[in-house]
Amino acid sequence: MNAIDKTVSTDINLGDLLAVLAVAPDAPLVFSYEGRPVRPGYHVTEVKAGQFSALDCGANPEAWSEIFVQLWDIDEDGRTHMPAGKFSAIIRKVADHVRLEPTAKLTFEVSDRERPMALYCAAAPRLVAGTFEVFLFARPASCKPRDRWLAEEQAKSACCGSTASASTCCT
């Protein structure tokens, strides 16, 4: 999974991420980006929340909440990957001081010691062999009017495709 198909969202929000991680709090949490896992000593260096207002390229007003989780991809002190419960505890501690909307868009900012920080969205975590895997995908720019149009077209074809042509949803 290296590319994002903008017709199908891979984003997970913070509430959904924490709910899945609660199933196995002792399981190591391994984020992967650019085809490789983060190093075992990674840090959550910052969690921030924002409310955004914008005007898209179709002159439509946009507003959304977004939570940024900054990961520093390093390997220090012979550590193992952070347990899911520790990650959740960090988020709860932040939530004691910063309003974190559970349904907000979730963005990961990842950097190592050499490369600049890059933005990623996250797919739903998978518990594989006792380890949570969370794949991060580069967050590309997009055209929101086009994305809305594609979603509408997908809904129409799902509802009115050849197998559903007799359906009452086709008008």
Rank of each mutant, 00 (worst) to 15 (best):
E62Y: 07
G41E: 11
E62F: 02
V47S: 07
K105L: 03
A3I: 13
E101Q: 02
A141Y: 10
E62I: 14
S9E: 10
L106E: 02
T131Q: 15
S88P: 07
P116S: 11
F68W: 13
D96I: 00
A84K: 08
R79A: 07
V23Y: 04
G85Y: 06
D26Y: 01
V69Q: 06
Q51S: 11
T45K: 15
W149M: 05
I90E: 02
D77T: 07
E152P: 01
A129S: 09
Q70P: 00
L127R: 03
F132Q: 00
C160L: 04
R126W: 01
L17S: 10
A95P: 01
G41Q: 11
L100R: 02
S157C: 01
S167W: 14
R146I: 05
A164L: 00
L119D: 12
T131D: 09
P102S: 03
D26G: 06
W64P: 07
V30D: 08
A104G: 04
L17M: 15
F137H: 11
E101F: 03
W72V: 01
V38G: 06
A95N: 05
R126S: 04
Y42A: 08
V47T: 13
V23N: 03
Q154I: 12
E76T: 08
K144L: 14
T131F: 08
V38A: 09
A122V: 11
S157H: 05
A155N: 09
A3T: 14
F87V: 10
V23G: 01
R126H: 02
K86H: 14
A164H: 10
D16N: 14
G35C: 06
D16K: 15
C57L: 04
S65C: 04
V98T: 12
D73E: 15
L100S: 01
A118N: 13
F68G: 05
W64F: 15
T103F: 03
C169H: 14
A24N: 05
T171V: 12
P140W: 06
C57V: 05
A3K: 15
P102T: 03
W64Y: 15
R92K: 09
N2K: 14
Y120F: 15
Q51I: 08
Y33F: 13
K156G: 01
R148K: 14
L150E: 12
